[in-house]
Design a protein around this nucleic acid. Sequence first.
DNA 1: GCGGTTTAGGAACGGTCGTTCTTGACCGAT
DNA 2: ATCGGTCAAGAACGACCGTTCCTAAACCGC
Lengths: 160, 160
Amino acid sequence: MVIVGRPRGFDEETVTAAAAALFATRAYDGVGVDDLVQHLGVHRNSLYKTFGSKRGLYLAALHWHVSHVLQPLIDQLRSGRDPEQFFDHVTRKGNLDLLLLAAVERAPADTEVAAVVAQALQLLEQAIDDVPMLPSGRTGKIALSELLGERVRVRALSAG
Amino acid sequence: MVIVGRPRGFDEETVTAAAAALFATRAYDGVGVDDLVQHLGVHRNSLYKTFGSKRGLYLAALHWHVSHVLQPLIDQLRSGRDPEQFFDHVTRKGNLDLLLLAAVERAPADTEVAAVVAQALQLLEQAIDDVPMLPSGRTGKIALSELLGERVRVRALSAG
DNA sequence: GCGGTTTAGGAACGGTCGTTCTTGACCGAT
DNA sequence: ATCGGTCAAGAACGACCGTTCCTAAACCGC
């Protein structure tokens, strides 16, 4: 495979990460392609050439979020050091927002999103379940629900 | 005040309830005025005459949901009988979905929605807090978070 | 009946959506 | 230098959005 033609002036992963940040703030339909073009600094044509469609970019951003944000947090939790910091990163900072929005808003309308969300939730649940010395009677499922709900509350109150 | 003119052919509260049901399934931007006209059986002009705008109808639906769905559930919980049924109505059935969507998706973009959501969450939290014989160490805040998160999980997995 | 008022029914509006097309600049290999 | 290819830039597309306007029908008080 020989590279031919003008090289692209943007880094695909950087753009994907920026898209993830944007999709984490507003609902899918609330983020226009114009917004993406403006915040990502990449032209429409390049976006469509690279990701195919707005949905393609969203799916790429969601996958990136799971593997480059959630997975490191999971790894950190599994390392056993500072489980409190995991809680903080997830609830206080917005590291769960894209997954949360995807679960609540997109998943019911997009089976592919639903599948990614389901897998991510499973990963999180399992990781929490494997934490030693979890208070008795508290499964990973319950602890994860508490995490998600806590973030819902914080997010809802953060505006106004 | 004397009534003059053709009487309306629909019940305002029935329409509001139907709108609430619709807004509970999809995101705000995902529900078009055409959808509302079709599912509610009321024509555009009447909707705009009655509620002013799509946002006005949404706010009416949200208020109705809080006072006619959540409040009765709260009252039932406070009555002390069958607290398990409260949990079931809220998580298994969709009785929390409109509030959940409003909290996650609308509240950050609409301060009036945020205010209604904040008050509703406060009501729920207080009601749970006042339940006697709550397991020690479990505040209403934590129990409500768990409720919300559980519903997020169920909702995300219900599609696909 | 009649006049006044409100609803019902659609057509129509400007704006914005996601997407595509057109044009020219750019780069690597020949 | 030239050709083949990709990229950048912006205009343009049809479709749909929320909203408004216009006309006819239905009802009340007189």
